[in-house]
Design a protein around this nucleic acid. Structure first.
Lengths: 226, 226
DNA sequence: AATCAGTGTTAACGAGTGTTAACCGTTTTG
DNA sequence: CAAAACGGTTAACACTCGTTAACACTGATT
């Protein structure tokens, strides 16, 4: 299984990229090495790898921006970020949940391999594609909400991710800034307002079961009650 | 209350499973014994237990993988892992946060029972979602006050928390500074006045049942009488 | 190339929530 | 009794959030 896995590696420093590529290949992975973010995005669409290893600082498109675009296409593909130690902790942490992980440079190859194997193996188990919310069934990967036996309601990427995090923290207050960093990568005024819009959209789509509520906690965040 | 608690026990070794099941049953728990991870997952969905005791090493689906899936459904259900001593410490520790705990095999039944009771009791303290105050039903989680069969009155976050603390200390004087520190994080002049405003608001919303009163104890705090 | 549908962002306005100030009566203190 | 302290209540205010709609961007289709 692992032996066939296709890995996309985006690293702008040629020497490092080559070493990592070769090391991974000796472990039986197929490695696609890209030297900048744009090339990585193109390669992603073309080759559909099972896992991404992205340098954060890259020409043309940085790792986070790239990751966000790819997450629009695939909500669950595991991503490992390679970060320089100068990278601030909190920015990185915003990305580490979900199918993500990160490694600080310099890192050992063993460590990278362990994490790759871990993400590839446990992936299927980590995100059970369907979860129940009240009388709804929420298909995260399918991006659908199904009320009892009715026609599934389609969710957009943002809606599905937002609901996913709310559900993971159901009956607890989920901090605005945590959601914003996870979904938008940053916490600024406009993102915050955008998020409010999606809360409205989710409330509409969830209103068939009145036991389910998304309650606001002023100044802190939202709480999914079910 | 505990006596009615449903516990899911997943343990692949039949002899051990049977012993634990019977021991817990003599303590008044209802025990659902499953012999592998897959069966446990099915049983979980069907029976909705209040607590899980999972062997880590099991056929079909190991305890950690199982726990992850169940956590997607319920982020707060307490889980106790049973681990062989060969299990490395650090792997186990990754799972001990949240509502989790673990026991190294071999373990004593007393120890298991203590931990079960501990987790079940703590949990109840954490979220007794509904409590009755006179003829009202106070939904703390839902932030509502329902008088008999009428339309629920909505409470704001502050109102709900304030009432929650008053109710937790009903018929006793609750010190001003304690509430202020818990709800406002600090005890200063302005917060104190703000709190008085909320007391007024609560009194209004509680006035349908005249047996309920929020009495001021000059210089000390408030007392909820019901 | 032009149009269209889907998605996400920005803007604008109104409603909800919490804080502060002001005024009042009551109780305590000197 | 007068002054001070305390608390009740209301209203004004500032800030946050809910909601709608317009707009921008992307891909797909014709």
């Amino acid at each position: 299984m692992d032996s066939m896995a296709k890995i996309l590696l985006a690293e702008d420093e040629p020497a490092l990229g080559q070493i990592v590529k070769e090391s991974l290949e000796t472990k039986g992975f197929q490695v696609l090495l890209c030297k900048d973010g744009q090339e990585a995005l193109d390669t992603y669409y073309q080759a559909k790898p099972q896992l991404l290893v992205l340098d954060v600082m890259m020409p043309k498109k940085d790792g986070f921006t790239l990751a966000k675009e790819i997450r629009m296409q695939d909500a669950t593909i595991p991503i490992i970020f390679l970060t320089a130690k100068s990278q601030t902790q909190d920015v990185v942490e915003g990305f580490t949940l979900g199918g993500n992980d990160y490694l600080k440079k310099p890192f050992s190859m063993e460590e990278l391999i362990v994490r790759i194997k871990n993400l590839l193996n446990h992936r299927k188990d980590q995100v059970p594609s369907e979860m129940s919310i009240g009388d709804y069934i929420f298909g995260f990967k399918q991006q659908t909400l199904t009320y009892k036996k009715e026609e599934p309601i389609k969710l957009t990427h943002r809606e599905a991710h937002l609901l996913f995090h709310l559900h993971n923290n159901k009956n607890q207050v989920l901090d605005r800034s945590i959601i914003l960093k996870k979904l938008w990568g940053d916490d600024d005024f406009f993102n915050a307002r955008s998020m409010d819009v999606f809360i409205t959209k989710l409330r509409k789509k969830l209103k068939r079961d009145e036991r389910i509520q998304i309650v606001n906690v002023r100044g802190f965040g939202y709480k999914l009650i079910c």
